[in-house]
Design a protein around this nucleic acid. Sequence first.
RNA 1: GUGGGUGUAGCUCAGCCGGCAGAGCACCUGACUGUGGCUCAGGGGGCCGUGGGUUCAAAUCCCAUCACCCACC
Length: 387
Amino acid sequence: MSAPRAFRWVHADDATSARCGILQTGHGTVETPAFMPVGTQGTVKTLTPEELRSLGASMILGNVYHLFIRPGINLIKRQGGLHTFMGWDGPILTDSGGYQVFSLARLQSLTDEGVYFNAHFDGRRLFLSPEDVARYQLDLGVDVAMLLDQCPPYPCSEAEAVRAVGRTLLWAERASLIIAKAKEEGRCPIFFGIVQGSMFPGLRKRCIERLVGLGFDGYAMGGLSVGEPKELMLEVLNATAHLLPKDRPRYLMGVGEPADIIQAVALGMDLFDCTLPTRLGRNGTAFTQTGRLVVRHAEYAEDNRPLDEACACYACRTFSRAYLRHLFNADEILGPRMLTLHNIHYYLEWMRTIREAIRQGRFSELLRSTLYAERSTKPARYEVNNA
RNA sequence: GUGGGUGUAGCUCAGCCGGCAGAGCACCUGACUGUGGCUCAGGGGGCCGUGGGUUCAAAUCCCAUCACCCACC
């Protein structure tokens, strides 16, 4: 289906399934493995496009479901498309809203036709079909588009998982007709199919075979990191990631912590997104070389060190823990902004480190030392030195 | 000066038909994985303005006193 190949390998690791690649999009290239900051409502919360660019972000996320509710797809189209509207000229991937069907379950009902739901802020009754979701992403002008899928909760019975896979495949088939037509007409985003199947590897295998039969540009693992134990997530990924076509980009949706990401890279995954760096940043938790640091803790009241002494980001070059703690306690907007900036910097640096290690043949070493540190160190703790 | 009201957690207040001192917010700690600038879970906090009286027992009833608020002169 994809005539010019958008994705190509640059380097593969000898000892694991890790690989470096390049994803060519309509708004520039993405070096993989890559982390994509989440910008659900057409903004990576608290950061400007210029800041994102200076942090080295390549591709960022948007969300069809949220943008459909507000401000509306047609409005964005009339404003010149999502890139122009939000002032970001780099690659954009939009999530379909399948996850919102799971996370906002109280507000919606599902049929084979699509999703009926109530807008979360004004209660309007709305509807999205898999065709709508595909067309809306064409209208938005995004670079990478996701199919509408059904993401079941955890835990879920095998019967329930079978139904979710069935509906995800039915929707994929219907969306692929829209995609085929768009490709004939010219410019079309890179479309990803989404694998479901909960924690049942056999079911995921069948889902992958059917999706590959339909032929998408890339494949995403969905329905993970929905509340299951981390070991189980890795076990399921370990049993199924290698079944995804090797010549297509592989996206692990919603994952995760830095240590989760490197393990998934080792299993052959290329793309990641997660709300943790931005959400935890807004709530006062920083990722550092020595673990998570909750900056509002009293022990930092008079700590004049930066968040992370090994970090070169603007927040670490400029502000002390004591000052950032003050900002959070005083409910000042600069606090969430600076921790978001720092966390995104941390994640993007982490991906650079991973890519570099793969290219230089040091990936296994990096993986080993990461897992060792995970098991042996608790989050950083320092002496209480407030008077 | 006279009359009335109010004093309980850092803040705003409930409890006043005597019977183990409470809530919300704030503070402290933990959680957060395709985002509702949240949300959830736990924790520390008190001479019930002060002094006396009644009672087995007083934040609660009685007397005095201090502080603040309102009205009137």
